[in-house]
Design a protein around this nucleic acid. Structure first.
Length: 253
DNA sequence: GAGAAATCGCATGGATGTCG
DNA sequence: CGACATCCATGCGATTTCTC
């Protein structure tokens, strides 16, 4: 049984996805949800792991990254498209969020499309711990989950490309090789399978997460267990960006 | 030299702790 | 669950730097 505040948070997330291009304020969002901004901010941060403002910013940057990769719009047009009225703000925030400037990001994507496992955030000279992460994905009871995407992210939500990822034909054991040094979150999502005739097999999508885990050259992370749970469509939008980054790749790439 | 993009300083609004 | 106080992250816009 979902609480009122949980439903409100789900509503807020859906609202953010629909209106991120507009000048949304926490007061507007809270008022729409029927709670004070104080209470909504507290509960949102508790449930999601990041504040509403940071979450909204992440949505905007996901759209910005898509436009930088797929469109010919200049930086100013993209900054306005995703809700920033100042190119300067957009540029500086993009750099603080991703580690590179918007133009550098576009150049990177145009000259060498990212393969799964490549991380534009990582300093090319930074040491990479030869660490392997082992884990197991568990489907909820009675669920016939199909293909499962498993990704390693720097945040508790799937922002940007995964640092490492793999694809499983069904819930079960997985291995992520060459895990870089740092603190990471393991996020998973199952997707629908197709029948032989190309028709969708209908079942409830599931997601799961674990973390943070710490990886270093002298500290291999413990094996993790990801329990998938069923989500409604509004919550699922949280994970929509994961699939953009989780290109099918050999396990452990 | 012109246009595009990045940087910087300041003002504003959001995040957080505490109390009712 | 709401209100208040305080700190600080974010956004704006002017300025500077870069590229052609």
């Amino acid at each position: 049984m979902e609480s009122a505040i949980t439903r409100a948070v789900v509503h807020v997330i859906a609202n953010m996805h629909h209106n991120f291009r507009e000048d949304l304020t926490i007061d507007d969002i809270a008022q729409a949800a029927g709670f004070s901004r104080f209470h909504l901010t507290r509960e949102f941060t508790h449930l999601i792991g990041v504040s509403p403002r940071r979450f909204l910013r992440a949505i905007r940057f996901e759209e910005a990254k898509r436009l930088l990769s797929d469109s010919r719009l200049n930086i100013a047009e993209i900054s306005h498209t995703v809700g920033y009225s100042s190119v300067g703000t957009f540029s500086s925030c993009f750099k603080s969020c991703t580690g590179i400037t918007p133009s550098a990001y576009r150049l990177l994507r145009s000259t060498a499309p990212l393969a799964a496992g490549e991380d534009p955030h990582r300093d090319a000279g930074a040491p990479t711990a030869p660490t392997t992460l082992h884990g197991h994905v568990q489907a909820p009871a009675g669920d016939q989950s199909g293909v499962v995407f498993v990704g390693l992210f720097p945040a508790p939500f799937p922002q940007g490309h995964p640092v490492r990822c793999t694809v499983l034909p069904r819930p079960g054991a997985f291995v992520l090789d060459n895990v870089p040094t740092g603190k990471w979150y393991v996020l998973a999502r199952s997707v629908t399978q197709r029948t032989g005739e190309g028709r969708q097999v209908r079942h409830t999508p599931t997601v799961g997460g674990f973390g943070p885990i710490t990886a270093s050259a002298d500290h291999a992370p413990e094996p993790v267990v990801l329990r998938l749970y069923r989500v409604n469509l509004a919550t699922l939008r949280l994970c929509s960006t994961a699939q953009q980054g989780l290109h099918p790749a050999p396990a452990g790439s």
